[in-house]
Amino acid sequence: MTTLGFQAPILVGGAAVELFTRSAISTGDFDVSTARQSAFESALRDLGFIKPSGPGVATRGWMHPDLALGFEVVSSALLGGLADRDRVKMIDLGEDGVATIIAVEDIIADRMGQFASGTAPEMLDQAWRLLVLHSEVDRAYLDRRVREETAGDYGIDDIKETDPA
């Protein structure tokens, strides 16, 4: 997409957690944030991805029939525009170009937001594991982001004080 002059899609969600935890937490799909959904989906189609449909199909994303990989555009603005795009990490893929991934602070905040919703208690464990593995995080930024994602109900201390193991 960058060859078309667009900003690269940003990997978010479970796949970002998997990368940041070195596969200690695994996922089966790739969620991305991009303001150019139609261009992204066109590129997926060109690579052989299909959009499954029909009875019993629960995905809104794109699947590759041979690779067993799935992609879904989950937002047009990174975490609703709350995440600092300047913190996005670039991963050099060599000849294949560059991939972009959400900052670890923002994925931790996202996990805490899901935990705070009351529908995903396992997200607290993910946030804790990410924080343990990435002790170099910008703690002030992380605390602000967790408070934003949880409507002020939680902060960084709520992660540090919790050992789900």
Rank of each mutant, 00 (worst) to 15 (best):
P121G: 09
P121E: 02
P121S: 07
P121R: 03
P121Q: 06
E122V: 08
E122M: 08
E122H: 13
M123F: 09
M123D: 06
L124W: 05
L124V: 00
Q126R: 11
Q126E: 13
A127C: 08
A127F: 01
A127L: 05
R129Q: 10
R129C: 07
R129D: 13
R129F: 12
L131R: 10
L131D: 11
L131E: 05
L131V: 10
L131Q: 11
L131C: 10
L131A: 11
V132A: 09
L133E: 12
L133S: 11
L133F: 06
H134C: 04
S135E: 13
V137C: 04
V137Y: 00
V137P: 02
V137H: 03
D138M: 06
D138N: 07
D138T: 04
D138G: 06
R139H: 05
R139Y: 03
A140T: 12
A140Y: 08
A140M: 08
Y141I: 09
Y141K: 09
L142F: 04
L142G: 04
R144Y: 06
R144C: 11
R144S: 13
R144W: 08
R144M: 05
R145N: 00
V146G: 00
R147F: 11
R147S: 08
E149S: 04
E149W: 07
E149K: 02
T150N: 01
T150K: 00
T150G: 02
T150C: 05
A151W: 06
A151C: 02
A151K: 00
A151G: 00
G152A: 05
G152Q: 01
G152T: 02
D153Y: 13
D153H: 10
D153R: 11
Y154S: 04
Y154R: 01
Y154D: 06
G155H: 10
G155D: 14
G155M: 12
G155Y: 14
G155V: 12
I156S: 06
D157Q: 10
D157Y: 07
D157N: 10
D158K: 03
D158A: 03
D158L: 05
D158V: 00
D158W: 09
D158N: 05
I159T: 05
I159N: 10
I159V: 12
K160A: 15
K160Q: 15
E161I: 14
E161H: 14
